[in-house]
Amino acid sequence: MKPSEIHRGSIISLHRVGRTNAQRARQLHICKQTVSRWLQRHKDTRNLTDKPRTGRPPCTTSEQDQQIRIAVEKNPLTTSLRVIEHQNLWKPHLTEANIEKRLEYALEFCEKPAIFWENVVFLDEKTFYSTNRKATKVWRKNGTRYDGQHVVSDGRSGRIGAALFGWVYASGVGELTDIGRGRFTGVKYVKLLEDVFLPSVRLLNPYPSQFFLLQDNSPIHNAEVVKNWFKAHPEINVLPLPPRSPDLNQFEHVWAAMEKQASDPLPLGSLPNRNAVIQKALAPWEHQRGRDAGQALCLKLTELMPRRLNSVIEAGGAYTKY
């Protein structure tokens, strides 16, 4: 943590009365390296103010900074993601080019009738874990490591992950399958499309011949080997989402519903392994298959696509509430 101007002045004052670096660090609750750095800065420049900086401007306002400080003081064990979500602080930065592409996409598809979106298959990938808790980070000041509010009582280790590939459509969930170990590549994606996706989607009555497929703008989805595979299957009309458009990807809501059901850690006493993680993720997916609740969720999300697109238009290509 960068010391305030008051702390910097205190470093110099304590130096003048003969305190050691270790004593100054303990008294001010900062590390010795910070004390040494500001002493050297004062010696070289006689100045304790911050140097001018270049680069990207701050992404938060002073009011938001204050909200963040209050949030972590109330709950030092919170995560940065939760702070961001609760304070509504973060979405991927949109460039002018991103905004333009989002707006073009929305204008192109906003007039499509609901029946059009009922003929669209949505694809996505997600990694599930053996526990929903990573190594816990603590927001604290230097010198307060062992304060009671900063100690986690039940640490966990051995977190195991498994990446899964799935697809949904207006009538419900399709297939969910293991991507496999190692890095996900375009070659792996083509194999999933060929061996899992295409055979299973062809079994559905709504898609006997041509159909539409919507996927996000992942670099893997745009790999040359993937483009060539789609060229060899002209019955599939690809609708790639514009860059940085999670608010136009209805699959995010499906994953969220699954993750909520699969978020509990594996039972204590079991030995977590990759297969157990896969089975844990498959359980809520299979629970939705053929059930009214699963069909209603997918149909609702499909019907919302025109509304999402119109929201992008109303926002001038910027982010929406979705």
Rank of each mutant, 00 (worst) to 15 (best):
I11R: 02
K32G: 01
S36H: 09
Q40C: 13
N47D: 10
L48P: 03
T60S: 04
T61F: 06
E63C: 13
D65C: 01
Q67A: 05
V72F: 09
I84Y: 05
Q87Y: 07
N88E: 13
N88C: 11
K91G: 14
H93A: 11
I99L: 04
L103M: 00
E108A: 12
E108K: 15
F109T: 01
V120T: 13
F122E: 05
F128T: 01
S130A: 03
N132I: 11
K134C: 14
T136E: 11
W139D: 03
T144F: 00
T144S: 08
H150P: 09
G158I: 05
R159N: 11
R159D: 06
A163R: 12
Y169D: 00
T177L: 15
G182C: 04
V201G: 06
I220R: 09
K227I: 08
S245I: 12
Q250M: 14
V254W: 00
W255M: 10
S263T: 02
S263V: 04
S263L: 09
D264K: 15
A276P: 07
V277F: 08
Q279V: 08
L282I: 00
H287Q: 04
L297I: 07
L299K: 14
L299W: 09
K300N: 12
L301D: 05
L301K: 07
R308W: 03
A318V: 06
